[in-house]
Nucleic acid binder design. Structure first.
Length: 419
DNA sequence: ATTCCACAGGAATGAACGGAAC
DNA sequence: GTTCCGTTCATTCCTGTGGAAT
């Protein structure tokens, strides 16, 4: 028998569940597509394109609708000789500044042999390159900025739509399509950016459980062989998706994970609710791990402090009371403890990741306002994720000991190898 | 109505670092 | 090498804030 063998297949086409899969029809987005299409019409007419701004929570079809319409647009535009359409697609996830957006855009526009470094240049130089490259195309440029809410300054959003007016461009026409998950992002934009970027706004509402179910059924019909899914599987995935903010991506990922788990099992031919539950657990763990791996050492120390305090039933706990524990851990790890202000930032960051939940308290003149933090995740999940990141046997063993003993944690947990 | 606690969180600033250009 | 430049993580200083106590 070879090292690899074909799995007992439950999938007909697993790719249909992947993020990059383009379904032939988008379910439940008719109105939005219609508006979107109208907004893009000027491109075909050879006019200066509208700037379009899409907003709505993650996984409600914004990106899918964009891909769908733009691929049609590209196809239809090719029938007219006088239209030279260029599409540039950029996901701004992980990019925090206009500068980074600009460098990535330049690289998108250039071929592989001519890429620039994403650091080192003065800002003005990068913009200069961007205008030059755009102008060289001399046609209609549609620039899609997905997840543009990740970028923390407006500069590029101000510059791009005005490039023509400022004589930075002569030949090229550009239209910006901004996609944002964050509702408040639009309101935080400076007025001048808002008026130009948000010429056309399209709101994508969350899917309800019914929509999600239709979407899942559509994908499952392509992805799985018939009668492989238990009847309860799709409704369950849809229900979880609807509960967590109507996110189709998440529901589909869950379905795929459940499918994968079922496939891994020998002689399993159906996907059941059990697989869905297990898949949910796995995905959750993945998210936690990802969040934790992005933290600073001090972030880890703060989390670890909170963890030990939690084991001692000290949570919920205010930042003031976390501090002594954190300080001693930091010293044990050979680091200078951070100043309280900064430590609070780390606590907030943990809260943002959903690892920790916060309740605001106010005892008025007696106690003032403060926040109380408590672990919001399954302890074992955090522990195993932390373990992967820390790669520190000492920490792990001592904690496991406490878990087993179920009694209070001493502060002498080994942290000597913390790095 | 006013006072006031104890923290939240914004803003300014700086050190360290990686990369480009000279 | 040195000089710029942008980014990240941190410190320092500061103003804002909600509600119990007066």
């Amino acid at each position: 028998m070879g090292l690899f063998e074909r799995d007992t297949e439950i999938y007909k086409n697993r790719d249909a569940l992947r993020e990059d899969y383009q379904p032939a029809q988008l379910v439940g987005r008719d109105e939005e597509i219609q508006m979107y299409q109208t907004a893009l019409q000027p491109v075909i007419n050879g006019e200066q394109p509208n700037n379009v701004f899409l907003y709505g929570k993650t996984g409600v079809g914004k990106t899918a609708a964009t891909r769908y319409l733009l691929s049609h647009l590209e196809e239809d535009a090719s029938q007219y000789d006088d239209i030279d359409l260029h599409l540039t697609f950029l996901n701004c996830d992980g990019l925090t500044s206009s500068y980074q957006i600009a460098t990535r855009l330049v690289n998108e526009l250039r071929d592989e042999t001519n890429q620039i470094s994403t650091t080192g240049y003065p800002r003005a130089t990068v913009y200069e390159m961007l205008w030059e490259d755009l102008d060289e195309t001399a046609g209609t440029n549609l620039i899609v900025l997905d997840e543009v809410d990740h970028v923390e300054d407006d500069s590029i959003l101000y510059q791009l739509p005005r490039a023509r007016a400022n004589n930075n461009l002569s030949a090229a026409k550009i239209g910006i399509i901004g996609i944002s998950n964050d509702f408040s992002f639009r309101d935080d934009l400076s007025p001048k950016v808002k008026s130009s970027l948000c010429e056309q706004e399209i709101h994508f509402p969350a899917y309800d459980a019914g929509d999600l179910q239709k979407i899942l059924e559509q994908r499952a019909a392509v992805a799985f062989h018939e009668d492989v899914l238990d009847d309860a599987v799709i409704p369950l995935c849809a229900a979880y998706g609807a509960k967590d903010a109507g996110d189709a991506r998440q529901s589909i990922d869950l379905l795929m994970k459940a499918g994968d788990l079922a496939r891994e099992e020998e002689e399993t031919v159906t996907v059941t609710e059990t697989h869905v539950e297990a898949g949910r657990h796995d995905l959750e763990r993945g998210r936690i791990e990802e969040g934790i791996s992005g933290l600073t050492q001090h972030g880890h120390l703060v989390l670890y402090s909170l963890l030990t305090l939690h084991l001692q039933d000290e949570t919920p706990i205010r930042s003031r009371d976390v501090r002594p524990r954190y300080t001693s851990f930091a010293q044990r790890a050979g680091r200078d403890p951070l100043v309280p202000r900064r430590m609070r930032d780390h606590l907030s960051e943990l809260a943002m990741l959903g690892l920790v939940s916060v309740t605001e308290r106010n005892e008025g003149r007696r106690g003032g306002t403060y926040r109380e933090y408590t672990l919001d995740m399954d302890l074992d999940l955090i522990l195993s994720a932390l373990d992967d990141v820390l790669n520190d046997v000492g920490v792990h063993d001592s904690l496991q000991g406490h878990l087993a003993a179920g009694e209070s944690t001493d502060e002498n947990a080994s942290l000597t190898e913390f790095n």
